Amino acid sequence: MLAITVKQFSELNITELYELLRLRSEVFVVEQNCVYQDVDDKDKTALHVLGKKEGKIVAYTRIFRPGDYFKEASIGRVVVAATERKFGFGKEIMIASIKAVENQLSYTTIKISAQCYLQKFYKSLGFESVGEEYLEDGIPHIGMIKN
Rank of each mutant, 00 (worst) to 15 (best):
V79S: 09
D43S: 06
D68V: 03
K52A: 14
E54F: 04
D40H: 07
E31S: 06
R24A: 12
K86I: 03
I63V: 14
V49H: 04
F70D: 00
Q32V: 01
E16R: 06
K52C: 10
E84F: 08
R85Y: 04
Q32N: 09
G76W: 02
V29C: 08
Y18T: 02
S25K: 09
V80K: 02
E92T: 08
L50K: 01
S74K: 07
C34L: 13
C34T: 13
A59C: 11
S74R: 02
L23R: 09
Y36D: 10
L21Y: 15
I63E: 00
V27M: 08
V49Q: 05
G51E: 00
K42Y: 13
A46R: 00
L47K: 00
E84C: 09
R85G: 03
D68Y: 01
V80H: 02
E84L: 05
F28C: 05
V30G: 05
V30I: 15
I63T: 01
Q32M: 13
Y60N: 07
I14S: 14
T15R: 11
R85V: 00
A73I: 00
F87N: 11
T45L: 12
Q32L: 14
L17I: 14
V39K: 05
L21C: 13
K44Y: 13
H48M: 05
L47A: 03
V35K: 08
A46I: 02
L17H: 11
V27N: 01
N33R: 11
Y36P: 03
E19T: 03
K56V: 12
H48P: 03
K86A: 12
Y69I: 00
R24Y: 12
V79N: 02
P66A: 03
R62D: 01
R77W: 10
V27C: 04
G67S: 11
Q37C: 14
V79G: 06
V27L: 05
K86H: 13
V79F: 11
K42A: 15
V79C: 13
Y60L: 12
A82Y: 14
V80E: 01
T15Q: 14
S25G: 10
N33T: 04
R65K: 13
H48T: 09
V78M: 12
V78D: 01
